Simulated scan of single mutants.
Amino acid sequence: MEGPGMTRVPSDERRAALIQAALAVIDRDGVSAATTRAIVAEAGMSLASFHYAFRSRDEMMRELIAFVVANEKRVTLAAVAPGTDIRTAVRAGLQAYFDLLVENPQREQALFELMNYSLRTPELDAVPAAQYASYFAAAGELLEYGALATGVTWSRPVQEVARILIAINDGYTLAWLADRDAVAAGRLMDFAADTIAALARPARPSPRPATPQEPQP
């Protein structure tokens, strides 16, 4: 526990510790239990430490979402092998996300709970839109990387493809959380990979510069 005379913790480390504490509380007790007092108790900090690190609970929830999404994006990007076809790349990315889900189902369940809780909580009413904006942005980055790695372009704006991907992803995530049927989830991921790959087309090769003519004698 922090106290007078103890070494001051740098702000970024304090924020990271509070994010980890909030995730621990949410994973264990649910979003409604993640009060500022519960979070600082989990982190072994004072209540003043929370307000030193974050302006509000809303700000902390936004950073928590950004942390989780960044981790999922990192894992998914690592699964995309350059030189493969787009369908294989999309399927590999979906599988990487699903493996992360199976490893820690409470984390995704907490994010769904956070959105629903925020929709009913005036002080957090801006969180759901920010949450899904971060999902769409991450999916867009992944799709752009996948297109570059596999030599395709998207036939629709990448923002639209990202929304389709997130909608399907949400569907099989919720279904798996409900029934834990990995085989059914695998079939849905196959469908998602087929659907997204159907929106890709080969990239046009860059035009080669004209060869300079030899000077006439």
Rank of each mutant, 00 (worst) to 15 (best):
residue 162 A to D: 02
residue 162 A to W: 01
residue 43 A to M: 11
residue 22 A to S: 13
residue 165 L to E: 01
residue 21 A to Q: 00
residue 189 M to C: 08
residue 107 R to Y: 08
residue 138 A to W: 04
residue 37 R to W: 02
residue 6 M to E: 11
residue 115 M to P: 01
residue 139 A to S: 12
residue 61 M to V: 12
residue 209 P to K: 15
residue 159 Q to Y: 02
residue 216 Q to K: 06
residue 42 E to G: 03
residue 44 G to W: 10
residue 50 F to H: 06
residue 36 T to M: 12
residue 201 R to T: 14
residue 173 T to W: 01
residue 82 P to H: 08
residue 173 T to F: 08
residue 139 A to D: 05
residue 91 R to E: 13
residue 195 T to F: 13
residue 71 N to Y: 03
residue 45 M to C: 09
residue 112 F to Q: 09
residue 136 F to T: 01
residue 179 D to H: 14
residue 71 N to P: 00
residue 104 N to V: 04
residue 78 A to Q: 12
residue 212 P to M: 06
residue 145 Y to T: 09
residue 149 A to K: 09
residue 57 R to L: 10
residue 168 I to L: 14
residue 78 A to M: 02
residue 32 S to C: 05
residue 164 I to D: 09
residue 13 E to P: 00
residue 132 Y to S: 00
residue 33 A to P: 00
residue 183 V to E: 14
residue 199 L to G: 00
residue 8 R to H: 10
residue 20 Q to I: 02
residue 38 A to K: 05
residue 157 P to M: 11
residue 171 G to I: 01
residue 132 Y to G: 06
residue 87 R to G: 11
residue 158 V to E: 04
residue 199 L to I: 08
residue 159 Q to W: 07
residue 155 S to C: 05
residue 122 P to D: 15
residue 55 R to Q: 11
residue 89 A to F: 02
residue 33 A to Q: 12
residue 80 V to H: 01
residue 175 A to G: 04
residue 137 A to K: 09
residue 202 P to W: 11
residue 77 L to V: 06
residue 108 E to Y: 06
residue 37 R to I: 05
residue 27 D to Y: 05
residue 5 G to E: 06
residue 120 R to I: 03
